[in-house]
Design a protein around this nucleic acid. Structure first.
Lengths: 154, 154
DNA sequence: TTGATACGTTGGCAATCCCAACATTGGTGC
DNA sequence: GCACCAATGTTGGGATTGCCAACGTATCAA
C-alpha cells in the first residue's frame, strides 16, 4: 500500500476485483486494522496485547499455550507478547505448581485499569469504522461475518 | 497465528473480542486471504499479481505508478511485482514515447489465458468462503463491506 | 522404562506495508 | 532561456506479521 492518494480522487480498481467479496473484505480489514492499531498506539499497545488482557480478565489466568489457542496466536509469538506486557507490569508469569513446564499468565493490579481504557479505544475505532451503518446494519454485518469465521455468535 | 487446532474443539476467544466487528473482520479477512492465496499458489501467483493482470486486461496498459494507485500498492513494491510477471512473460514494460520517465506495462499474448484461469481460482475461493451464505446474504454482505471501504458498488 | 506429547523459548524465513532517497525527466513559473 | 517543483522507476531498508523447525524440560500413557 501507500503513496497516499486522496480517496475521493483515487482511480478505481478494476471491476473484476471490486466485485469480489474477498477483495472488499481485504480492504475493509485493512481499514479496520489501521483504525484499531492507531487507537491502541495511544496506550503503546497492539492488537494482540489488548487481546491477551481481555482474555485474562474474562477467563482468569491461563498458560501461554492456552492463550495462544484462544486468540489464534502461535505459541512462539506469544512469548514476545507476554514479555512486553510483563515489562509494563500488565501481566505476571506464575509457575504452575502442578506442571513445571507451564507458566500461568495472570493479571496484575494495573491490568483492569489499562484494559478499561483500551476497550474504550477499540470501541471508538469500531464506531468510526461503522459510522456509515445504522444499528441494524451493524448487526447484519456482524451476523454475516460470524458465519464466515464460523464462531458462535455473541 | 497457527499451532493448528481443529476449529471444532478450539477454545473460544473472549466475548470482549468476539463481539467486535473489527475482530470478526480480521478473522474473516485472514480466512479469505488464506483461501485466495492458497488457490492462486497453484498458478505460482499471489494476490497482487492477479490484481495487476486484471487491471491491465480491464483498462489496457498503464504506467507502474498508475497501477499502484489503482490497486492501492506502493510504487516501490510494484517494481518487484512487475519484475516477477515480466519474468513469466505475463506483462511487458514498454517505454512511454511521450514521457521517458514512464514505463507502460502491457499485457502479452499469454496474459488473457492465465487470467482466465486465475479468475476461476479466485471465484472458487470466494465460493468456499461464502459457502454458508445464500445469494441474498452474499449481496447483503457485499453491500455492507462496500460502505466500509467507501468504494462505489459494482 | 520407553515413547509420545506438551510446554516455553529461540531463531529464522517469507510476506506485507511503509518510508526515504536518488537520478532522470517533465512541467511551470519567471 | 533558467529556476524550481513534481512525478517516475528504482533501490534499500525498517517494522510487523504469520508460520515453521528445533531444542531442553517436563508430563503422561503404554
Amino acid at each position: 500500500m501507500s503513496d497516499y492518494v486522496d480517496p475521493a480522487e483515487r482511480p478505481l480498481p478494476p471491476t473484476a476485483l471490486r466485485r469480489l467479496v474477498s477483495w472488499q473484505l481485504s480492504q475493509a480489514g485493512a481499514r479496520s486494522h489501521q483504525l484499531v492499531a492507531g487507537k491502541l498506539a495511544a496506550e503503546g499497545l497492539r492488537k494482540h496485547h489488548h487481546a491477551v488482557l481481555a482474555a485474562l480478565l474474562e477467563f482468569g489466568g491461563m498458560t501461554q499455550a492456552e492463550l495462544g489457542r484462544r486468540l489464534g496466536v502461535d505459541r512462539s509469538d506469544m512469548v514476545a507478547i507476554i514479555n512486553a506486557l510483563e515489562a509494563e507490569h500488565l501481566v505476571r508469569r506464575n509457575p504452575d505448581p502442578e506442571d513445571r513446564r507451564r507458566n500461568i499468565v495472570v493479571a496484575t493490579s494495573e491490568t483492569a485499569r489499562v484494559l478499561a481504557r483500551t476497550d474504550v479505544l477499540v470501541d471508538e475505532a469500531n464506531a468510526e469504522l461503522l459510522a456509515e451503518l445504522s444499528g441494524a446494519e451493524r448487526e447484519q454485518l456482524y451476523d454475516l461475518l460470524v458465519r464466515i469465521t464460523r464462531m458462535p455468535a455473541r
